[in-house]
């Protein structure tokens, strides 16, 4: 518990985490508003095929905040001080305070999970009124199971970013790949045009938890299981890597 609280303290004392929280809280509402404005005329005319996505699209695309959170939580450990300052890394301090690497990783993952869930809850409380503001009575019903699915999607996404960064040690590659993939035209979306197997990639399966896209083949529950399996595989790999790796390597 002490290690978990220390990880929360560590994260909240980094300015980059507050940027991630800001993006996570407001980007989905902004995206939801812009999408609702674009769709409003078609929705009122009753010809929109994307009515069920209204609002939820913000939660699907505006996931960058938790990606930054998951990446930064790990990459900040490996960020090297300048050579003038001695060239040290925070990971050395962390592992001399919490000597069990497994406890260290679980405490950090726990902190990322809690912050991701809170970020998503704040994002939902912004997205729902923002969508109502634009669409009024035409706003689709926000159902609890779908909103819980969105919270799971955000949390799993943060943990995927976390696990990948443990393996790479460097935040740039996972940040670039995951943020690009969470954009409107994602790599997995393009791949799904080539093979249906791409619908089992974590982001596509995860979105099925709260959105019904035309090409979806997974139920919300199956989508959750598939994304959770991806998290499990990557997190297991991260555990193996951190248990075996020398800090100096």
């Amino acid at each position: 518990m002490r290690a978990f609280l220390a990880e929360l303290s560590k994260l909240f004392s980094l300015p980059g985490i507050w940027l991630a929280c800001g993006i996570g809280a407001f980007a989905p509402a902004v995206i939801a508003v812009l999408d609702s404005i674009a769709q409003k005329e078609d929705i009122i005319a009753g010809v929109s095929t994307r009515l069920p996505e209204a609002g939820y699209i913000g939660l699907a695309v505006g996931v960058q905040g938790v990606i930054i959170l998951g990446v930064l939580a790990v990459s900040s450990e490996y960020s090297t001080e300048s050579s003038e300052s001695g060239g040290g890394q925070q990971i050395a301090s962390s592992l001399t305070v919490v000597s069990s690497r497994l406890h260290f990783l679980l405490a950090k993952a726990g902190a990322v999970t809690v912050i991701s869930m809170l970020q998503c809850i704040i994002a939902i409380t912004a997205v729902v009124p923002a969508t109502y503001l634009i669409l009024g009575e035409y706003t689709p019903l926000f159902e609890w199971p779908k909103l819980i699915g969105a919270v799971c999607y955000w949390t799993f996404t943060a943990l995927l970013a976390f696990g990948i960064t443990v393996i790479t040690k460097n935040g740039i590659v996972p940040l670039a790949v995951l943020i690009m993939n969470s954009s409107f035209v994602s790599i997995s979306f393009l791949l799904s045009k080539v093979t249906k197997l791409a619908l089992y990639l974590p982001d596509r399966a995860g979105i099925d938890m709260f959105m019904s896209l035309s090409e979806s083949i997974l139920s919300p529950f199956t989508g959750a299981l598939v994304m959770f399996a991806w998290v499990g595989v990557l997190f297991s790999a991260a555990i193996v890597v951190i248990l075996k790796r020398d800090v100096a390597s």
Binding site: L14, S85, G86, G88, Q89, Q90, S93
Partner: peptide, 8 residues
């Protein structure tokens, strides 16, 4: 090495 702390 160094302070062992994040620069930010």
């Amino acid at each position: 090495d160094g302070a062992g702390a994040h620069r930010m």
